[in-house]
């Protein structure tokens, strides 16, 4: 999604992947866990932010990932 209203603070990301697991589970018709279906992608980075976060094109800005982030890496702008 271009210009997502979700604010990313990658330095806070712990790499727990709960955002991605929740995105796929709550947003797929089949209610599955899947990294392929998730619209948020968390990958290793290796700086003071150990993870890099990106949104895929079909993100609907539903905020489920924000609700599942307990580390303050995702917040509403």
């Amino acid at each position: 999604m271009v210009g997502s209203p979700i604010k990313v603070k990658a330095v806070n990301c712990s790499g727990c992947l709960r955002c991605a697991l929740a995105c796929s589970f709550y947003n797929t018709k089949e209610r599955v866990f899947s990294f392929a279906e998730s619209q948020i992608v968390v990958r290793p980075d290796e700086n003071d932010a150990w993870f890099n976060i990106e949104f895929r094109e079909d993100c609907i800005a539903c905020g489920i990932c924000v609700d599942h982030c307990d580390f303050g890496a995702l917040t509403w702008e």
């Binding site: 806070n12 990301c13 712990s14 727990c16 992947l17 709960r18 932010a49 150990w50 307990d70 580390f71």
Partner: peptide
């Protein structure tokens, strides 16, 4: 310490 790291699926970190 710079930050928290967590296992997959864990909110504790």
């Amino acid at each position: 310490k710079i930050g928290d790291i967590s296992c997959m699926g864990c909110s504790i970190g």
